[in-house]
Design a binder for these strands. Sequence first.
DNA 1: GGCTTTTGTCGAAGCGCTTCGACAAAACCA
DNA 2: TGGTTTTGTCGAAGCGCTTCGACAAAAGCC
Lengths: 338, 338
Amino acid sequence: MPTISDVARAAGVSPSTVSYVLSGRRPISAETRARVQAAIAELGFHPHAGARALASSKTNVLALVAPLRVDVNVPVIMQFATAVVTAARSFNHDVLLLTKDEGTAGLERVAHSTMVDALILMDIERDDVRLPAIRTLKQPSVLIGLPADHAGIACVDLDFEAAAACALGHLAGHGHQRIGLVGPSPAVYRRQTTYADRFLAGFLQTSNELRLRTATHPCEPGVEGARAALADLDTELPGLTALVVHNEEALRPLLDLLHAAGRRVPEDVSVVAVCPRDVATAMPVDLTSIDIPAHDVGTLAVETAMRLLDNRSVDYTRLLEPRLVERASCREISPSHR
Amino acid sequence: MPTISDVARAAGVSPSTVSYVLSGRRPISAETRARVQAAIAELGFHPHAGARALASSKTNVLALVAPLRVDVNVPVIMQFATAVVTAARSFNHDVLLLTKDEGTAGLERVAHSTMVDALILMDIERDDVRLPAIRTLKQPSVLIGLPADHAGIACVDLDFEAAAACALGHLAGHGHQRIGLVGPSPAVYRRQTTYADRFLAGFLQTSNELRLRTATHPCEPGVEGARAALADLDTELPGLTALVVHNEEALRPLLDLLHAAGRRVPEDVSVVAVCPRDVATAMPVDLTSIDIPAHDVGTLAVETAMRLLDNRSVDYTRLLEPRLVERASCREISPSHR
DNA sequence: GGCTTTTGTCGAAGCGCTTCGACAAAACCA
DNA sequence: TGGTTTTGTCGAAGCGCTTCGACAAAAGCC
């Protein structure tokens, strides 16, 4: 592996000049630059990352802390990860992948040993135990999610309250008055990942504002969970004409159950899903849905990290506006049916 | 951030002594070690990763090159990644996540700039364009998959030929003679990821050896793909009594189609799936299946990398033996039906 | 009891880069 | 035209660690 000195020698300049060609931090004449670049290309020189980190105290590496349990939501996690890696690369950074189960210790390890310049954390809980830790790190963090006390910490997420409002607004606009919510599994609520609560809060508030008759229910995984949730909603809200489903996993069983019961979508019951676009379109019925914009959120998280790193101003809380895409699962209810 | 000199000063020793306490590469008296460790704990010292890498030319980082398209098989990719990260941590290494679409350039970038000690690559194609490149790297690579020319490169994977033999053996043992294979999508064959071919080869060979009547068909994604594949198999092999499904994604639509057609599993048609355990058990029928042991493969890949790094001997080709788990989707055919 | 070996510690060199200060030459400005 | 600024380059220091050689003291060996 050639070093910067080898390049310097080949180009007939000093190592510092090579460094300045690379970084552009000082003016270099066109000829010199050309000679240096030729030497770099010829020798196949790549600066040693460790040496660089040591001298400049920048690693050009981001930590991504992902929940790698083989759990729900795997495809969404993957979308986040893909977006983060891709965006990071576009800023000439790499991504170190950490699992959530290393917990606080993992964050401190990579931060204290200066392996990364910034951290991006997913699957943030309401009172996430990692928050106090990240506040003490010298590296900035960006959260994908919104914990209770997020003062001074950059957070990026979909605006789930607005998403709920949007879903209900759409259905109400189509004349629906009796609407059930199939929520995430109780485990999600228990884990206190706040998107569930935020969606629920938005749902209840909008339901109130629009004077709708609604009922809400979490939904255990599996067909049985879906069956139970649906049964409960039917009992609490007889004659419901629409469902909002904020549970990717329940979507498929739910549609199967409706089908089996002879309840047609959208003729007998309208459905709005909250899920990634590809999940919505992969269902037997093309679902009107609100995107989980994993790609945008991931990209934005990286952009925020970059701004933080070269201390430009950032919005500490960025909740992305939901976008509802009409497909084929909602129908207009005629006044007579209202 | 305290440095090793700070620790040395606090403990009243030289920096090199602290280093030897940390690495254990030279004998240190118990008292000294205790004093140093106390100082480390008190100051909260963490060695600077870059400095370490520079001085020792080891980074304690592994590159994991994953196909991060939002494509099929996402859960399996995730399982590999989880296993790799977890195993790497158990060897005190971290994982740098690269996307496959950075291609050869990405590998060379991280390798040449000495960001990683070794590389683990997934989604290996028959004539993977990256092979020549990894042969020139000074860091060792471990492939998850088996390309055509793998001489001198460590490869780890499930033995898909044996898996096919295992599936057919099981069905033949239950008296089945007419067996269809639902293969991966044509895109997978086109991409030349060899597991598809290896499974197919094993299938055909065993079919021959056991003198079975078989037909094979790739399967496009979606319900329509499954419908077409099933129809083709039924035409080519009328009266088939069993299906081997080597296509996670097709599993669900396939079962739905059978159900809709009134063909019961296992009464009318037996099914053996090749997929991760959790997929098999999440189906409406508990499927007898051959595991894709993503966890084992990922772990083994890391172990192999570690052996290569401290040049211990390795098996350059490790094909894990398939394990078939009997569940509820195969039935014994009575002699009269044979 | 002298010999070698092992144990325990230190100092210094060096890993490959960035960055600061210095300085000469060129360009700009009144 | 003399002074100031900008341009272009260099040398040296230093980032924080590992590792080698040196060496004194302790231990092992007939």
